[in-house]
Design a binder for these strands. Structure first.
Lengths: 115, 115
DNA sequence: CTCACCCGCTAGCTTTCCTTTGCATGTGCA
DNA sequence: TGCACATGCAAAGGAAAGCTAGCGGGTGAG
């Protein structure tokens, strides 16, 4: 998730697609200030827990945040999330480089066998 | 579209959402190597003109590419596209900063009038 | 036991995105 | 006049994303 090595094209698509969402941006903003557990975060952001979970799942899948269970003093299981320190540089050049590593589009060529 | 001033949160969402697509990445890759007109670009990328046009529209809307008409020697109107030299730095910090400038979510408060 | 918190999942609806197909317009050349 | 190549837009269907509502389970404190 750092700058080097550059992400593959497919990964970049996934990461950018994940970042391109208001809720998820706010989640990152909140977590970058302080790690938090699901319910707390939901209250802070003013969204439902269910909705937050969906977004956290995507953020985790993209490797932008990470989570680990923890037991609070009174024995409750809390899932703490924190931001993953990523650094991405986007320019026509870096995009172009990533684009070259994209998995080729499904060529539906009727003459060529399926592989 | 440069690094400073940073884009507003909404703009960032738009830009990232635009970049998060294989076709559009390839378009940027192709155009960063050499500007081109629609039909040519479509042939190069192996996609339909209609499809390419949709993507070009989004790229243009996000300010990532620009276009201008030109008349070829034989008098045909060609629309040349070229990449806009953007530079974006993405880190938890820059995302957080952008997140703070997002237009607040539609509060559907039954007590408050519609505006 | 009941309440207050914590965690997680899914079915279902709505909206947005992606892509194809088809039609229209204009120019130059044979 | 007909073909080749340029541009553009819109309808329509399918796929993916976003969100809500509802249900389930667990622990500790009163």
């Amino acid at each position: 998730m750092s700058d080097d090595p550059p992400l593959s094209g497919d990964d970049l698509v996934r990461v950018l697609g994940t970042l391109a969402n208001p809720h998820r941006m706010r989640v990152i903003a909140a977590l970058s200030r302080e790690r938090a557990y699901v319910s707390r975060l939901a209250r802070d952001l003013g969204i439902s827990r269910a909705l937050l979970q969906v977004h956290l799942r995507k953020l985790t899948a993209a490797g932008l945040v990470s989570a680990h269970l923890e037991l609070s003093e009174d024995g409750k299981a809390m899932k703490y999330y924190e931001v993953e320190p990523f650094v991405l540089r986007l320019t026509p050049g870096t995009i172009a480089a990533a684009a070259r590593t994209l998995t080729p589009p499904e060529t539906v060529d009727p003459h060529r066998a399926e592989r």
